[in-house]
Amino acid sequence: MKSAQPIRFVLPDFEGPLDLLLHLIEAAKVEITRIALLDIIDQFLAFVRSAPERDLEQASAFVVMASTLLMIKSRSLLPVHAPEPIEQEQHVEDVEAIVEQLHEYKRIKALAAVLAARDAHGQLQYSRERLAIAVEQPTSAHPLEGITIQKLVSVARTVARTAAHARMFVDHDRVTIQQRIGYVRTQLRIRGGEVWWSQLIADVPSRLTVVVTWMALLELVHEGTCACDQQQPFADIALRLQGQR
């Protein structure tokens, strides 16, 4: 917290000229009024004059406010009977405008404090990820229901073939992401802009190639060539050329 003792502030301590004005008024422990504003003009000007100008954009906001306040101050020093009525009116309007701005800004800061607290608070509360099981369809009471012997044989053959390939090629498998990107692009073209992940890895000889294909896919998504879509966890992934549906 900022205390009452004289501390040298720098411009970056304040979010802007309104922040500084509000601080000066609050340090004086007075309400935000025309009188209060007129009282702290000198302090504001002294501050801006002494502050080193680092951030030009921010500094300019202070200078604009300083010039407005200077104008207000010079008008308020004129003899009361002398100024023309119009000028007097303008003077009151200028002061009122800043007082109104300060009232508004005070509310903004109050709301900002609430938001900052909530922003920090939310980070201290942890939640779980959705359970994967929660999104799977309820399984049938008989796990083998609807599975024929033919289907089992065909699945077993596929597994055996893949396994055989893996043993044969694992040492010789030299594949680059660039090659797989080319492969994926070709597949996308052949299949009309849309291909399933399962199709991409249907014939690959090894796990390494699957991994490299996956990296190729990520690269294509990263560069914006393709988009991926997966209906639910563990489901097949659809890959489509961007701009096509």
Binding site: E15, G16, P17, L18, D19, E57, Q58, A61, M65, Q101, E104, Y105, R107, I108, K109, L111, A112, L115, A116, D119
Partner: peptide, 25 residues
């Protein structure tokens, strides 16, 4: 945070209006 506060309170709002309320860019 302050910019967010202004938008919450005054939305929909333009950048210039926000900058007027906050007094800075």
């Amino acid at each position: 945070i302050e910019t967010l506060a202004v938008i919450i309170a005054k939305q929909p709002i333009t950048r210039v209006e926000i900058e007027h309320l906050r007094g800075v860019g």
